[in-house]
Design a protein around this nucleic acid. Structure first.
Lengths: 349, 349
DNA sequence: CTGAAAGCGCTTACAG
DNA sequence: CTGAAAGCGCTTACAG
């Protein structure tokens, strides 16, 4: 009997009058065991309530069937979970289900490089790291420890260094900007976050390139992701000037469309515009990438991208499992194409 | 060297010219080892990049330092994650952090009784099961397997049978109903879900008792949680009669306040009221328990409860860890008191 | 203060 | 077709 009181393979062997080896063979379909012996052993195993120990099995396979998900943006937010950003719940949920389909389970771990990280955080066979930062120490650590991992988004300082799943950030940005133009925009301001991940970097680059192409000066307002909806007043001061005050801090003419990278920023800009009596979408178009829920239910509702976190998760799990099993990673196209969800904020009557 | 290529305790022992026993003692502060020996071993361990194997350690401790979280309501929703219900993300995130503080990691697992559940889903030392159903097979399974677990909410058919953390559903309901009366309600309709968990059952019971006390006939509309915002038209038909049609399906007079157990139901009722031109809060008060994000940003915004999933998670982790370590569960009050977030939908000018 | 030995529960060559 | 033995990487009485 196990320390915990559960029967072991020995108990089954004894009850069946065979050796542990035979029980192992019978129960795992390995080796050659007579059919009736197999059946008898299976029956007895069920009778005594035998459950193989995943730990013991893990010891010589040196694999436990565990995947770890590290949601990197949470680590800049400290213990704070941003409300409304269900992107990550969708991702974690989908990853958990995808893992199960491969016979794996998913653990949710914090930054494993933090001092005091429990040993158990390191039992995963492979890691999935979402939105790694520039020169992310987590990736460095995993690479040093030779723990297999895949990223969702890439470390902007080490592109192509590690296996990655990507939501094509270039396409994303173009998709939204083009839509804004079609919806009537002439001059597009951009509100961007401060996290140094590939999503932010690529989106900025695409915006800059787009500006050159469209002969517009970039009109960029930067604010921490964690500021969330609070970004509204600052952003509008920047783009339109303080209320009843002088002109825009930006220097140039005011934009007629604002694109916010995060959904919470978009919600904040939208709310502040309403407060100031700027009519959306008539006077100002607003769109967000990576929509938050707030954008769905606000008045007006706000056009955003759906980045399809479920699909990203599924691809990431596929790769992580292949890596964990030291199998070659299937070489298929894993680019996830975002879709535009057009809402009131960019729909003029 | 480990199969994976990482150094083992033997490698360190060899390099230090001592036995594995001494390395183990030195690194874990067990037994008695001379200080300088300890220091030398620590240095060498760091040099060769030694990391103890959590699996090997887990084998004789028969504990791995892993907690499993089963979010039961997800299992009625199939692979579908309800948008806007960030209750569960807050819960999972807080549980993950609380686990780390105890030296544990958190796994997210689906129904472990499902056929095809990976072995790895069973390596957890203890389980946390949120909102178990009536006679929940997951609890039965865990109890049979003698795996320690704690529930958040209780199995309504087996109250007090298992350790549980509770958000006091009675208090919750009374809190909202009393608030609605203060806000001007005379007759309160109730929209409730179909999941057979203690939260739903207790809330109903409290509503029924409240009706008796306040001399009102219960005015109850039941709809599946998964219907979400779509519940609006059906609910309003029930309470007010179909548009331009006959009277309320409910039979009695129409309510002047509606309390919805789920935030998504509240959002649906709120939206449908707006569509029909019923003015909220002037003609109709609306409130929800367990708010979703939609309620925060809708027009009008909707009064809801904050059930404090973070606190529930923290308590659940405390208990789960105690159980995993076969320690007595600290006997402190774990009732989490919800707070009312009053918003436009119940605030008359 | 240090080490040889047994053991955690399983799997896997290998020998019969 | 079946089993004895060794081993996965660690810990823990126990003996020196």
């Amino acid at each position: 009997m196990q320390a915990s009181g559960r029967p072991t393979i020995k108990d089954v062997a004894k009850a069946a009058g065979v050796s542990p080896t035979t029980v192992s063979h019978a129960l795992n379909g390995k080796g050659v065991v007579r059919r009736e012996t197999v059946e008898r052993i299976e029956r007895i195993a069920a009778d005594v309530g035998y459950r193989p120990s995943a730990i013991a099995r893990g010891l010589q396979k040196s694999r436990l069937g565990l995947l770890a998900l590290v949601i990197r943006p949470f680590n800049t937010l400290d213990t704070y979970l941003p409300t409304g950003v269900d992107y990550f719940l969708r991702m974690a949920g989908a990853a958990s289900l995808a893992a199960m389909e491969h016979g794996y389970s998913l653990m949710l771990v914090d930054d494993p490089t933090k001092p005091g990280t429990p040993l158990s955080a390191r039992v995963a066979d492979a890691y999935i790291v979402t939105e790694p930062f520039e020169n992310d120490p987590v990736l460095t650590y995993l690479a040093e420890e030779r723990v297999p991992f895949v990223t969702v988004g890439t470390d902007p300082a080490r592109r192509d260094a590690f296996p990655a799943i990507d939501a094509d950030s270039q396409d994303q940005t173009a998709l939204v900007l083009d839509h804004l133009v079609e919806a009537g925009a002439g001059r597009i301001g951009f509100v961007i976050g401060t996290d140094r991940n590939s999503w932010t970097a690529d989106s900025y680059e695409c915006y800059a390139a787009w500006c050159v192409e469209h002969d517009q000066d970039p009109l960029l307002y930067t604010a921490p992701e964690s500021l969330g909806e609070q970004v509204g007043p600052g952003a509008l001061d920047f783009f339109f000037g303080p209320e009843g005050g002088s002109g825009p801090a930006s220097g140039g003419p005011a934009p007629d469309a604002i694109y916010c990278l995060t959904g919470r920023h978009a919600a904040g800009v939208n709310a502040e515009a309403a407060r100031r009596g700027i009519r959306v979408p008539e006077q100002l178009l607003i769109a967000g990438a990576s929509g938050a829920l707030q954008n769905m239910t606000s008045r007006p509702s706000v056009t955003v991208l759906d980045l399809h976190p479920e699909e990203l998760a599924k691809h990431a799990v596929d790769v992580a499992v292949a890596l964990a099993e030291h199998r070659p990673v299937p070489d298929i196209d894993r680019t996830v194409v975002p879709s535009l969800i057009v809402r009131e904020s960019t729909t003029r009557a």
